[in-house]
Design a protein around this nucleic acid. Sequence first.
DNA 1: GGATAATTTGACCGATTGGTAAACATTACA
DNA 2: TGTAATGTTTACCAATCGGTCAAATTATCC
Lengths: 216, 216
Amino acid sequence: MAIPRAAKTLRRTRIQEEKEEQILEAALDVFSVSGFRGSTIDQIAEVAGMSKPNLLYYFRTKEAMHRALIDRVLYNWLEPLRAFDAEGDPEAEIRSYIRRKLEMARDFPRESRLFANEMLQGAPHVLDMLKGPLKELVDEKAAVIRTWIKSGKIARCDPYHLIFSIWSTTQHYADFDVQVRAVLGEEHSGDGRFEDAARFLEQLFIGGLRPDGSGA
Amino acid sequence: MAIPRAAKTLRRTRIQEEKEEQILEAALDVFSVSGFRGSTIDQIAEVAGMSKPNLLYYFRTKEAMHRALIDRVLYNWLEPLRAFDAEGDPEAEIRSYIRRKLEMARDFPRESRLFANEMLQGAPHVLDMLKGPLKELVDEKAAVIRTWIKSGKIARCDPYHLIFSIWSTTQHYADFDVQVRAVLGEEHSGDGRFEDAARFLEQLFIGGLRPDGSGA
DNA sequence: GGATAATTTGACCGATTGGTAAACATTACA
DNA sequence: TGTAATGTTTACCAATCGGTCAAATTATCC
């Protein structure tokens, strides 16, 4: 008889590691496209190449699978913002933040869509994280931006909306990929659009945040 | 006996107008949150306050409901971009485009989420529209922006990515509303955030697009 | 008011949903 | 190699899914 699944987390087998990995990979495929409600266990099982009961042996419910997936993906997703450094040069920091976020949109579009789906549905599974850890992290980085403003290194602006606009512009290339490609046309649907986007966004944010009295 | 439904479009009753309106309103509620796959006819029927077979009397399938909803919402959704005027002053045009898109995010968030859901799922129901009419419209407006660049009224930049970034930053306040509110906190979750966003985005885009040799 | 068309509903259908039970197969380890 | 724990599968369940049907109800128009 199998031990109760609650105990599974105590000692993890090689098989457990592999299968759970395999399942979460398939779950990411499915959840990121159809959202939680629109996805079915059967779909995920098929993508994962195993039977539904086998899948449910590792994750007792659809909820548990979704939660495990979000938990695993969340930490890496916030890494670029965490790397935002108070000590660095504002212009370089903003540039590199945009670059990193765009790279993630290019290399991990499913993760981006997973969160986008969750947001559209009102964030039923991550609302506490948004109000807690995420808000704290953003508050912290907003404070950094405010010191840059106070020292005159960048223009006066609302740091929260600055962060929102970097999020939205970069994630757009993952979440709305199909629209971007349709509008750009077949010939510009290679990865070159990410380089073009990076160039444009750097120009936009660096120019838009240049302190009043500087340069020109 | 009721006439075949194909004939319904020939002469429309008062009741038909009202009920179809009522159904599409409920469908917008449901589809915009859960997407096509994640929404059920029963849900929509309940929100609309009528029985499922009654609902299916007006729209034969879930697909038909979704298609009718998209068709109805699409025209208005593209109106701000259509209003983008070649004759106007670039700065004023961009300002007013941002304002209008933000107003739509505030006043029609469900419509925004309906499209966002559709995009995340790969636009199965609107791909032709994206590649056809939408692309043509954007091409046209991109040409307008290029004339502004050529005449030195705004900085050199990629007009497509400029449009993408206005779309993404403004729609963010509808699609990611729950995240925006969570990060800003309870106290900043009134409609004031749209005014703050407008101020920031105007500053960002006007500053970011200022031609090299001008001002400051 | 009566005929006729339009609308609404309850009962129902087969397919799919999330999930379970138990038999069966495999692995790890003494 | 035996055996207990782990892993997998087949068969199944009740609930929900999209959708149909025929009967009942309501509106329209002469």
